[in-house]
Nucleic acid binder design. Structure first.
Lengths: 353, 353
DNA sequence: CGACGGCTCTGAAACCCTTCAACGACGACG
DNA sequence: CGTCGTCGTTGAAGGGTTTCAGAGCCGTCG
């Protein structure tokens, strides 16, 4: 900057003004300075700026695992909202490692970002408080600590289950099943199950919800559940299945098909979450999507709000609504739906010119 | 830091030493300073440090679109390599916007990161040079500019096509088809086709490669191609299909199934890329995967190497091998393979406690 | 007993920018 | 023609850290 000032025949203060308060400097001077900046290829040092300002305007996002489609959606939504509001979002992937997550959080704290979005896998504990003590606002994303001294964005998992059951009931199915019902120690499972039960209860006496256990929340769990359902006599067999996870739903579908049953002709199946792997199969999967983008957006709003009102900010929890997306696995017709208006179908690679 | 120094009764220089060169300070002093640091909750300001050092040790990654699974894999691989080498990787998503991409690159340049990985959609042009003029090394990822004054990491697309055709030929299929062959203006398509042709040529006279055009690289293009193949008389119909894209392959499969053909019984199908949407269907898709993680890893290695040898660094292009992953759509048996050793199957949401 | 070498620790400069009080010039006004 | 206000510009302070030359101090050796 000194070089620019010297070469333009002005003081560094003036160069700074050209950069940050162009209106304060006479057009002639400004143009001269700008010309020199261009000529010298000068780029201001963001660190020095932040050092003076005390805090940068960048936002950080620490995500538990970018391999999980939901977190990617959260990152995309957050990125868009941040951009719309004139800031930059930097994402750090903790790769399922709590220590790394803490490291990333501390790094962003050290670098004095305007605020951090944290989407953890487990309770982050005191790590968050350390950052906040330095004045780095933190918003918790997609994880419920139950704390009320922290802004939080959550998906309404009760509504996830409710929407799923409501959809199937609305199609006229009465005998429903809920696969994965035994994993109620996982809060989202608990909530989804509760929502599904409520919808069934509201539908009156003719509707029922069979709760099917799985050994595992991972795909393998759907295997046994799928076989169990397939082997039931047709009169007792559930007519429609809600799996607590898209991944479980996918394996249930595979087992049903392998047993010679038709999906959705004999059994309709649907999942929850936002797992793109269910979208492209022969029977694209109906699902209640966790609206990750909306979660990310809302989180950025909350974070900027908190960052703006240093003190006197009231922490709150925003609950985002999930969204039902109907595909072939529950629809009446089996036409492949991949061309349909699936939300945010990523563009295809190859993307080279 | 001044506060810490005062409270510990030492000078700021000593506090700095405790932080960066603990061996230079007497244990007693060190412990006292550390105690005060803890007591005061002091966290060093990374900006000030970078300001002095001239450059931080953080790496930046600017990615064209996080909605694309391949870029996510690149980010994950890069993250892991960076972590293994003791640095931090910050990812910025350009959301398919070239201007935003340039903005992100400039931002990282301003913030004086150790280097930037850039995975663009189109030729980034002079943006890159601006950053490099300030001494910010840039490595181009998954995009071939043809420049030799830049380190680049590419996937061997010729080998993608070659591996695909070789796999099918190895299974005994002779009449192959290549779907999407008309999009040769896209460099990856051109290379993949060339590789496939070569494998077929090497197989001798009895093997053939029917080149099928699609109106579009997007999924819809697979529709017409699939119908076209399905409607051919069985004797002329290709026995195995390579689609230039996983997404195309998925829709081809859907059309074949809809026409009453069996996959892979009547027609085997495979794709290329790394699109997870093809993994979970009733007929999980065989594919030649672009090994995004390896690309990301290699890119970080290159970048750190360039960052280390300020001058006298020889730019080079590293070509990463793709990887054949066999699933049901080409295998002899149709057993669902989702439990098999699919590379990097993400863990399931729900991930709350 | 004095000189000398090692350890520790200090203080100040340097890093690059922003901001703010103050200053000079210039036009308007009385 | 002197005074006042504005506008544009300046110069220095300040922000948090690292680094480096040097100052004390203690022990050792001659």
């Amino acid at each position: 900057m000194t070089d620019v000032a010297a070469r333009a025949g002005v003081s560094v203060g003036t160069v700074s003004h050209v950069l940050n308060h162009p209106e304060r400097v006479r057009p002639a001077t400004r143009e001269k300075v700008e010309a020199v900046i261009e000529e010298l290829g000068f780029t201001p040092n963001a660190n020095a700026r932040t050092l003076v300002a005390g805090r940068s305007s960048t936002l950080g996002l620490v995500v538990a695992d970018l391999g999980n489609t939901l977190f990617v959606e959260i990152a995309r939504g957050a990125q868009r909202e941040a951009y719309a509001r004139g800031t930059t979002l930097l994402t750090a992937d903790s790769d399922n490692d709590d220590d790394l997550q803490a490291t990333h959080l501390e790094f962003l704290d050290r670098t004095r970002v305007a605020g951090v979005l944290l989407s953890p896998m487990a309770d982050p504990g005191a790590t968050v408080d350390r950052a906040r003590r330095h004045g780095t606002p933190v918003v918790l994303v997609n994880y419920d600590t139950g704390r009320d001294d922290l802004c939080t964005v959550l998906v309404d998992n009760d509504r996830v289950g409710y929407l799923a059951a409501q959809h199937l009931l609305g199609l006229g199915f009465r005998r429903l099943a809920f696969v994965g019902a035994n994993h109620v120690r996982l809060q989202p499972v608990r909530d989804r199950l509760a929502g599904a039960r409520r919808a069934v209860a509201e539908a009156g006496g003719r509707a029922s919800l069979l709760e099917v256990a799985t050994g595992d929340v991972r795909p393998a769990g759907g295997r046994t559940a799928g076989r169990e359902i397939a082997s039931m006599p047709a009169r007792r067999r559930p007519r429609a299945v809600i799996a607590v996870t898209d991944l479980l739903a996918m394996t249930v579908v595979q087992e049903l098909l392998a047993a010679g049953l038709d999906v959705p002709g004999d059994v309709a199946v649907m999942g929850c979450d936002y797992d793109t792997r269910g979208w492209g199969g022969a029977v694209p999967l109906t699902s209640v999507h966790l609206t990750g983008q909306e979660v990310g957006r809302e989180a950025v709003r909350l974070l900027l709000e908190e960052a703006a009102h240093e003190a006197g900010h009231v922490h709150r929890t925003v609950v985002v609504a999930p969204q039902l997306v109907v595909r072939a696995s529950s629809a009446g017709d089996r036409a492949p739906a991949a061309d349909g208006p699936v939300p945010d179908l990523p563009p295809p690679t190859p993307h080279l010119p």
